[in-house]
Design a protein around this nucleic acid. Structure first.
Lengths: 239, 239
DNA sequence: AAGTGGTCTAGACCACACG
DNA sequence: GTGTGGTCTAGACCACTTC
């Protein structure tokens, strides 16, 4: 692995904090001391510490030092940009993906808006439901620009689209805009999900961008109400 | 004002991008040139640019430069750590806060867990509903440790607790852990909200921390389904 | 080859916390 | 006063893109 020095330091410290090898509420060594310990400069240490701070591992206090926060990171499901597979696997529950549709389409008007493209461009439509503990609780509707992804197979859809994009196609997913709302369930939801008595779903709309800022994919993730959970760590912007 | 050089540069560029004075999809000048223009060092420019990147204003591409993204920032309501008042005011809609309860209580067991305190500590209980366009659509239940906030008045609750904490009490709110779920409406919800035909609410649970890492406040924000919206900008962590 | 962003260094001065 | 994190500098080398 060609790892940056500050990333190595970040990973080492994050790992120790997560595993409790560094106690929460204790103080990290000062930046000067860390710089010495890792035989590096203070600015490099600071890069690592700022990452820890951004991700909720520590709190830096001017004049005092860096306090280790108590992270229960095994607690986060949908924060940031993570695929269903990554979440499902880390949760340890039995899960399965059912592929209902995998076709090339010309986008209609709303879809053009979401994908910011013309109606002539071809787009993959993938419809999948996610089964956890024998219940279909999430309906994922993915629309992917064929321009970036020439072929998709059913097998790929059952494992992970993201993994395929990144490992096999070399696409670098960089950022996303996410919107969460609650809407009335559609016929599609009733068809593919085990809806029980619920008549609404949580809808997570996602626009996924590559590192060259082009829009790769639009995704609608529809969750049964009782199975939806989103957790987030946020720092306040002071102005 | 604490005017860091990199903050000044960040604010100036963010402002220009938001107002369209720098076109989206255009390139920023290179870091070397910006350093010259702002008569500063490249590392300082890089701090400003990294902030822009984190907040979705630009995308940095190695070997090429920084692309200006098209931000419609008037689009985000609940991302990060913002109070209802800040959101309501920037949305421009008519809003009002109705205070239903403002009392000192000893926390019960669940509340103790959320606040991570013993049952002996006194806590302010504030229950408010938020009225937008003549409809009560959000029920906010705040629990604030009296240890940090000796007194609260009804007037303060009607305006903004955060503003009071920060401007009057000098408390510095630093970060929060947020959880979003959907739950069955309680009697309280029916009592204080205009629930229409809905029988569920979106529940946003928030633990708010000060800059010395102590927990100040636990908040439950209960939204009528149709009026809830959360948007987020997320960058992918590559490992 | 020239230009770009990414990393890293060794030093400097400041503001803040604490004894 | 001493130690801490926050800011800033001027320079270096690297990897990548483009010509």
């Amino acid at each position: 692995m060609r790892e940056n020095k500050y990333m190595l330091i970040y990973n080492e410290l994050a790992d120790k904090i997560q595993k409790g090898k560094i106690e929460s509420n204790s103080m990290l060594p000062s930046e000067y001391i860390l710089a010495e310990q890792f035989s590096t400069s203070r600015e490099t240490i600071r890069k690592a510490l700022n990452l820890l701070s951004q991700n909720g591992y520590i709190q830096k206090i001017k004049g005092k030092g860096s306090v280790v926060l108590d992270v229960k990171k095994f607690d986060f499901p949908v924060s940031g940009l993570v695929s269903f597979r990554e979440i499902a696997e880390s949760s340890g529950k039995a899960w399965r993906t059912n592929v209902h549709e995998l076709v090339l389409v010309k986008p209609d008007e709303t879809l053009c808006q979401h994908l910011k493209i013309s109606g002539k461009e071809e787009v993959w439509q993938v419809i999948r439901s996610r089964e956890v503990d024998q219940e279909n609780i999430i309906l994922d509707k993915d629309y992917i620009r064929r321009k970036f992804v020439p072929t998709i197979t059913k097998d790929i859809c059952e494992v992970s689209l993201y993994q395929y994009f990144e490992k096999n196609l070399g696409l670098v997913i960089s950022f996303a805009k996410k919107e969460i709302t609650v809407e009335e369930a559609t016929e599609e939801d009733y068809k593919y999900l085990d809806m029980k008595e619920y008549n609404h779903v949580v809808v997570v709309r996602n626009q996924v961008y590559l590192d060259d800022t082009s829009l790769l994919q639009y995704t609608e993730s529809r969750h049964r109400l009782d199975k939806f959970r989103f957790v987030d760590f946020a720092r306040r912007e002071h102005r």
